[in-house]
Design a binder for these strands. Structure first.
Length: 315
RNA sequence: AGGGGUGUAGUUCAUCGGUAGAAUAAGAGUCUCCAAAACUCCAGAGAGGGGUUCGAUUCCCUUCACCCCUG
């Protein structure tokens, strides 16, 4: 018997958080955050983290579990999320994965094998160095030699992925292109319902702009300033998050506040767009278009419940 | 009201008497260890009307719009 798993995702600022609480209350759920920034303590405003009082007693996992100088990535997410699910099932509750990081959701849902690197031999760092010295094309040529298919699929300019492909070959002796083929075939071992909350594009963009303004009013600048004073710098993964990245530039004096805000809004819009692109190609997705429900959350919830019943996730 | 100036892609700016380039926004997409990251692709324009010319976005006239100065 497959375990139940509910996923509630969608582009940033679409209203996932509010809906997730309503849903959790109805079905005795617990929430697992699939968000690469909300894991960090002290990054509350910029990551639009749920406030304690908003949780309404619903248990949340994977929020505030790291300090900003610590690294976080899919592999860690996968491990921690799995552990969280164990706990939730043991509590006889239904897990709801809520968050906008599609890659994380995929890793969990399909239990993707990332063949963890056993050896810490600095190979990746060496490749990064090579990329800087000899250029992106050189690395891409290297990849062509060991894994032509991957080389064909990855654009030479996409250094990050070229490096990962080379690293994968270095560590496992196998081609990442073949590995990815296999992983793609995987079926989820959950009885899942994958909801993507979406809305009219224009409305969404407006909401993003408003939310950024609200964040600034709520003290985003002070939040970033405090992080900066604690010694965190823009090369940290956490500080590359939207809001932090842009305001760091402002605080360092490399742009005006207006420019930083403009960039933040724009980048957030771009991000939302990319999220939608991601969900579009994810299979078995249930799209929930807010504009079709006149932004009436009660109606939306009814639809959610209906879909869950259909799938036998709830009675 | 008079004088001057400017009108080119959604925006900012090029170029040119002979099929108008870019940046940026918009749109589409890739993604299997930094994913709020990284990367790719694409469409779109010379205000309206007239004239000169083989040919006008470019030169001339005019209307309109905007800006500046004077009153």
């Amino acid at each position: 018997m497959k375990q139940p798993l509910i996923i509630l995702t969608g582009p940033t600022a679409v209203g996932k958080t509010g809906l997730s609480i309503e849903l959790a209350k109805r079905i005795n759920g617990a929430i697992v955050s699939a968000d690469s920034m909300q894991v960090y303590r002290g990054m509350d405003i910029g990551s639009a983290k749920i406030k304690e009082e908003e949780k309404q007693g619903i248990k949340h996992y994977l929020i505030d579990i790291l300090d900003p100088e610590e690294d976080f990535n899919v592999v860690q997410f996968q491990a921690r999320a799995k552990a969280a699910l164990e706990e939730i099932y043991a509590d006889r509750k239904c897990p709801i994965v809520v968050g906008g990081t599609g890659f994380y959701i995929q890793a969990l849902l399909y239990n993707i094998d990332f063949t963890k690197s056993e050896k810490e031999d600095g190979y990746r760092e060496a490749l990064e160095q090579t990329a800087k010295e000899k250029g992106a094309d050189f690395l891409h040529e290297e990849l062509k030699k060991v894994d032509p298919k991957a080389a064909e699929e990855i654009h030479p300019n996409n250094v990050k992925r070229v490096i990962r492909a080379l690293e994968f070959y270095h560590e496992s002796g196998k081609k990442i292109s073949e590995h990815n083929e296999q992983e793609k075939e995987k079926e989820s071992f959950f009885n899942s319902a994958y909801f993507v909350l979406n809305d009219d594009r224009e409305k969404m963009y407006q909401r993003i702009d408003q939310r950024v303004d609200q964040m600034l009013q709520d003290g985003l600048i002070q939040e970033v300033k405090a992080l900066k004073e604690r010694g965190f710098h823009s090369s940290m993964v956490s500080m590359q998050g939207l809001g932090y990245k842009e305001l760091f530039e402002y605080l360092e004096g490399s742009c005006t506040l207006d420019e930083a805000v403009y960039k933040l809004k724009r980048d957030t819009r771009h991000f939302a767009k990319r999220q939608i692109t991601w969900f579009r190609r994810e299979k078995d997705v249930i799209w929930l278009d807010k504009s079709a429900y006149e932004s009436n959350d009660t109606k939306l919830l009814e639809e959610l419940m209906l879909q869950l019943k259909k799938r036998g996730i709830i009675e």
